[in-house]
Every structure is written in structure tokens, then in C-alpha cells.
Nucleic acid binder design. Sequence first.
DNA 1: CACTATTGATTGACTGGTCAATCAATAGTG
DNA 2: CACTATTGATTGACCAGTCAATCAATAGTG
Lengths: 207, 207
Amino acid sequence: MPPRDEHDYEDRRQQIIRGALDAFAAKGFDSASNKDIAEAAKIGSPGLIYHYFRDKVDLLHQVILEQMPLIEIIDSAEAMMDRPPEEALPEMARKLMGAIHQWPTVAIARVVIAESMRNKRVASMVSDIGPGRGMRILATYLERQMDAGRLRRMNPHIAARLLVGPIIAYMITGYIFEQPEIQSVLPEEMAKQTIESFLRAMAPDGA
Amino acid sequence: MPPRDEHDYEDRRQQIIRGALDAFAAKGFDSASNKDIAEAAKIGSPGLIYHYFRDKVDLLHQVILEQMPLIEIIDSAEAMMDRPPEEALPEMARKLMGAIHQWPTVAIARVVIAESMRNKRVASMVSDIGPGRGMRILATYLERQMDAGRLRRMNPHIAARLLVGPIIAYMITGYIFEQPEIQSVLPEEMAKQTIESFLRAMAPDGA
DNA sequence: CACTATTGATTGACTGGTCAATCAATAGTG
DNA sequence: CACTATTGATTGACCAGTCAATCAATAGTG
């Protein structure tokens, strides 16, 4: 059954996806009802959702697939493979921090993390397109820098986590647990210190 | 109304708490029904839950309060305040990794993080007794070591996240996203590398 | 020591309500 | 007019929490 107009169809679909993201971010996937979604998306009826999506889980999957902004960042990171860490890492951090400051990133992160926590299918889907792919690319990059003698040699997957871990800890303690001591530290400051420490720890033995 | 037998009462209560933890970890707080909990706890009826707990949220709170194994670790960490990092950090890591190997730790982490994501009351409760307190104690310890000249001086809250972050990243990528590359790295290895890197990065400038 | 009263523990049925999903009817469009 | 888009009512499942009734252990009594 071809849709009446390809563009209208896609616009409507996106409208529902964006509304669903708002609703999921506000209430979580389970607690956001189709009525909530319909209201957030400004469509007249919950029933319409089923014209565009198989079911609620399908809608969640489409939201995740089409709204994960990390994907472009990971792509751009892939282009930096041969630049030395002192340049490439701050550049990546700058892009990442820029993304964090935008609403959809935080919203989608909430949804994705909460849902990955208890749904293995979502977790592996998310991992494939987002964090998993990102970590793998980062590890490849670090390994190449080790080969080039610019970093001390070690398991690159461990090294990737040494680099990314502090930022994750910063985000969890700051954004989720809202610990007051860390609120006064700016993201840029945290990124700078993390990279500095990483490079210090990973300096080649000869240096 | 005192219970017939204090021990029986407490045993039953714990039985329900453990069952609830299993159910919450498997399905999440909202999706786990009282029937699920009753089955997991091997009690005959969902109604019995209300003999021991005010409501479902009260049950969640009790699960978190009584099953967060981090609490003892934090207590023991407080005793190490004056020992040098080369001794104290591996000791803390050993205890932490021991906890990670046990099922309840990962289960409770799943529940707690997912729930903190959308419930600020739970988030701050959790933060007060677990991660928040732990991070604060760690920061105090690190600051004291900086004062003693055993570590390079920097914001101790950032330093605490530099140390703990990689372990968190290791847990999230390994246990929640189940990324295969990191599965072959043993927790002990990860802890050792993290501490080594941290000490390298934090070595006093003069050294 | 036998018998009964009392009390807490446990059950299963029930209630008011919510929700995802379906569907028949209608509006709109090419 | 043929076909899609949209609506709103409906269905059937399920759920948190309540409650009356039953069960089992203990305490009290003569």
C-alpha cells in the first residue's frame, strides 16, 4: 500500500517520533502512554500511531535509531585516525561536549540508558550503533597511536575506557545523581583534565 | 502489633526483598508486577507483600536500602584515610571487584540507575547512602594525600572521577551493553591498569 | 495438661482503573 | 470514485491495592 504522498507520510512519521521522544524522556518508555505520545506529537488520536508503527516497541526502536545524535560524532571521529592524540582527543571532546549541551542528546540518553538497563534487545541495538561502535573505533585509534609510538602500549580496549570512563562518571554523578560537589566543575574543565591525565599516564616510556 | 516471632518475621521480609530485587532487575520496577514479585519470592500471594510493606514504592526503598553492598565497602574505605595510595587504592579496588563478581551488586545497580533516571527522590536517596557518599569520601582521601605531597595537586572531586570512572565504564560496557571486546578482560586486570594509570598521571611533579 | 481465646500470617477473590491494540466509520485527497 | 489518513469508541488484558475469610501458633485458664 503506497502512501498518498511520500513527503507528507514521512513528515507525519517524524512528528510522531519527536513527540514520542519527548514523552519517553519525560515519563520513561513504560509510563508514557499512547495518549501522552499523541498529545506530545500533537496528533488527534493514539490510534494513528498504529498507522505508522507496528506497535509501541517498534516506535521506541525508531526513536532510538533516528534520534541518536552520537552517530555523526562517531563518524567524524573516524576521520581523525592518523592525527596525534594531543590534537585529536581535545577535538573529539569538544564535539562531544557540544552535543551534551543540546536537549535531544540528553533526552535520548535518558531513554536509551533506562531502557538498555532492562531490555537486552535494546541494549545490544544501542550498543551496535552507539557506544559499542564508538568504543571500538576509539580503541582502534588508540592502538594505531600505540603502533606509531605516540602512546605507551597496553590493551587498547582498557585504554579506551581509561579515557572515556571519567567523563561517564562525571555525567552520571552530575546529571543523574546531581551530586553538588561536581556541579561547579564545567564540562570543558572536566574534559581538559581527563585528556591531560590520560596523556600523562599513557606517555611512551622513553619520553 | 508485634509479630509472632521476630526471626520468622524478618526472614519473611528478607525473602520478599530478595524476590523483589530479582523481579525488579529482570523487568524493571514498573513492569515487575506484584505477581512477579510473589513468584520470585516464592510466597503464595501478592497480597502478602502488603503485610510487610506499605506499598510497592516502600518495597523498592527497602530493597535499595538493605541490598546496596557498596555501603560496607565505603565504610571500610573510610578507615584507610592515612595509608598511601599505592597501598590503599589496590585494597579498595580488591573489595570493589569482589562485590562486582556477586549477582546482587549488578542487579541492584541496574535497578538503582534505571529508577534514579526518572525519580529524583530515589536518585538523591541512593546518592546519599551510596555513590555520593563514596565519591565524597574518596575525594577527601585524595585531597589529604595531595596535602601530604604524595599526589599532584588538583580538584579532588575531578581526581576521584578520574580514578573511579574507568571502572564504571568497564562495568557499563561489559555488564549492561555486553560488549564482547571487554568481556575477556578480567576485573582484576582492569582494576590494576586503572590504578597504575591513575598513579602515573597523579604523580607529584617533582618525582 | 487439655481446651479455648487471641492474634498474627496467609490466601484468593475482588475493585476501580489504566493501557495497548483493534476496528469500524468518516474525512480527505488525487 | 478508489484509496489513504484519521478519529474515537471499544475490547480484552492486566495491575496495585483492599478485604474478608481461613489457618496456625501461642497464651491463658481451670
